[in-house]
Simulated assay, not measured.
Amino acid sequence: MSLPTEPTSAPAGTTAPRIRPFEVHVPEEQLGELRRRVGAARLPSRELVADRAQGVQPATVRELARYWADGYDWRACEERPNALPQHTTEIDGVEIHFVHVRSPHPDALPLIMTHGRPGSVVELLETVGPLTDPTAHGGTPADAFHLVLASLPGYGFSGEPTELGRESGRIARAWAELAARRPTG
Score class of each variant (00 low, 15 high):
residue 51 D to G: 15
residue 153 P to L: 04
residue 87 H to R: 02
residue 82 N to M: 14
residue 14 T to H: 06
residue 69 A to R: 10
residue 102 R to P: 00
residue 159 G to Y: 06
residue 40 A to C: 11
residue 3 L to W: 04
residue 41 A to G: 08
residue 178 L to W: 01
residue 131 L to R: 00
residue 116 G to S: 07
residue 184 T to E: 13
residue 165 G to A: 02
residue 114 T to S: 12
residue 15 T to E: 15
residue 132 T to L: 05
residue 143 D to L: 06
residue 67 Y to K: 03
residue 54 Q to C: 11
residue 68 W to R: 03
residue 13 G to T: 11
residue 74 W to M: 13
residue 131 L to K: 03
residue 43 L to E: 09
residue 36 R to M: 14
residue 157 F to N: 09
residue 182 R to M: 11
residue 35 R to W: 03
residue 32 G to C: 10
residue 170 R to T: 07
residue 181 R to M: 11
residue 155 Y to V: 06
residue 162 T to R: 15
residue 28 E to H: 09
residue 49 V to T: 15
residue 88 T to D: 04
residue 134 P to G: 06
residue 41 A to L: 10
residue 74 W to K: 14
residue 32 G to R: 14
residue 69 A to C: 08
residue 132 T to K: 01
residue 70 D to R: 08
residue 151 S to L: 10
residue 11 P to T: 15
residue 116 G to L: 02
residue 29 E to L: 10
residue 39 G to V: 04
residue 140 T to Q: 14
residue 76 A to M: 11
residue 34 L to D: 05
residue 167 E to M: 06
residue 81 P to D: 02
residue 79 E to Q: 11
residue 87 H to V: 02
residue 4 P to K: 02
residue 131 L to F: 05
residue 120 S to L: 07
residue 126 E to I: 01
residue 133 D to G: 08
residue 112 I to Y: 10
residue 79 E to C: 07
residue 166 R to N: 13
residue 134 P to R: 08
residue 149 L to C: 14
residue 91 I to E: 02
residue 166 R to Y: 13
residue 162 T to D: 13
residue 149 L to K: 12
residue 115 H to Q: 06
residue 128 V to K: 02
residue 67 Y to G: 05
residue 68 W to D: 01
residue 10 A to I: 10
residue 171 I to L: 12
residue 180 A to L: 13
residue 33 E to I: 07
residue 26 V to Q: 06
residue 50 A to H: 10
residue 85 P to Q: 01
residue 143 D to S: 03
residue 52 R to M: 12
residue 175 W to C: 03
residue 142 A to E: 11
residue 146 H to M: 00
residue 43 L to Y: 09
residue 96 I to P: 02
residue 94 V to K: 11
residue 39 G to P: 05
residue 71 G to V: 00
residue 69 A to G: 02
residue 17 P to E: 05
residue 185 G to W: 09
residue 20 R to E: 13
residue 68 W to F: 06
residue 45 S to L: 14
residue 81 P to K: 06
residue 134 P to C: 02
residue 66 R to A: 07
residue 162 T to Y: 07
residue 119 G to D: 05
residue 124 L to K: 04
residue 72 Y to R: 14
residue 27 P to S: 01
residue 6 E to V: 09
residue 75 R to G: 04
residue 74 W to L: 09
residue 183 P to T: 02
residue 68 W to Q: 12
residue 32 G to I: 11
residue 98 F to Q: 00
residue 162 T to M: 13
residue 101 V to S: 07
residue 120 S to P: 06
residue 27 P to N: 00
residue 49 V to P: 11
residue 131 L to Q: 03
residue 96 I to K: 01
residue 67 Y to M: 03
residue 79 E to V: 07
residue 33 E to P: 09
residue 127 T to S: 09
residue 168 S to E: 11
residue 26 V to R: 09
residue 120 S to N: 11
residue 15 T to P: 03
residue 110 P to A: 12
residue 72 Y to V: 13
residue 84 L to C: 04
residue 142 A to N: 06
residue 120 S to W: 09
residue 135 T to N: 08
residue 161 P to I: 03
residue 20 R to P: 04
residue 94 V to D: 05
